[in-house]
């Protein structure tokens, strides 16, 4: 009797903290519904969608595994690609906790990957980046220092500038260019990344 009580008290442990998703719902109510539905049904929804896609070619975003990954898994975590073998991975954290084997990532990619057309849009965001730098120079924000800065420092300046712009703009309109900027800078210095991710979190929480 005592042992079983001990066992019960062990079940009280809190479920693990999950990684934050990158997109935001319009309201907390919609988010809570999504979370409640997915906690119980994500496996059935994914399996249903998988058959619809295989047999009928239905490729909507709803319940698409790629869409889940793109929102729930960051492109980089502490400067590295986050894989399903890492405990921080959104799916792995919970699946380890409940000891349910996760088969999806034997075949499917476990982190967001740029498709060709998205890479093209990343290229345009490089031109956006340049135009932002140009605007900075035009508006004489530290324009005297620009010449002596290297690429990394230029990027930090650009991010600061975007952050300033975003605090004055509604978050939706500013968010797009910032996100694109962040994506396009993936190939550059990895030491920047922790800072950048922190900034996104600050932005989205505003």
């Amino acid at each position: 009797m005592f042992i079983s009580l001990l066992g019960l008290s062990a079940c009280d442990s809190e479920p693990p903290e999950l990684m934050k998703a990158s997109n935001k719902f319009e309201s907390d109510e919609i988010r809570d519904k999504h979370v409640a539905y997915m906690r119980t049904n994500h496996m059935d929804a994914l399996k249903h969608k998988r058959d619809e896609t295989m047999y009928d070619g239905i490729r909507t975003e709803e319940h698409s595994l790629n869409a889940c990954i793109n929102c729930h898994v960051p492109e980089s975590h502490n400067g590295e690609v986050l894989r399903h073998t890492d405990q921080e991975h959104f799916c792995t954290t919970c699946h380890t906790y409940v000891a349910a084997k996760l088969d999806c990532f034997e075949c499917h990619v476990d982190h967001p990957t740029k498709l060709d057309y998205e890479l093209k849009s990343a290229k345009t965001s490089i031109s956006q980046k340049k135009s932002i730098l140009k605007n900075m120079a035009d508006s004489n924000i530290e324009s005297m220092q620009l010449k002596s800065l290297d690429k990394k420092e230029l990027m930090e300046l650009a991010f600061k500038h975007v952050n300033n712009q975003q605090s004055t703009k509604p978050p939706k309109s500013g968010g797009v260019s910032f996100k694109a900027l962040q994506n396009s800078d993936l190939e550059s210095n990895s030491s920047n990344k922790p800072n950048q991710t922190q900034k996104t979190e600050e932005l989205t929480s505003e």
Binding site: G57, N66, I69, E106, C107, V109, P112, T113, L115
Partner: peptide, 23 residues
Amino acid sequence: TLVDQRPNSPRGKGTVESCNLCV
């Protein structure tokens, strides 16, 4: 075992694969 597959073309150990006409 494969890693870093293309998001639109899942491939994995233990399965057969072929041209799918880029479905």
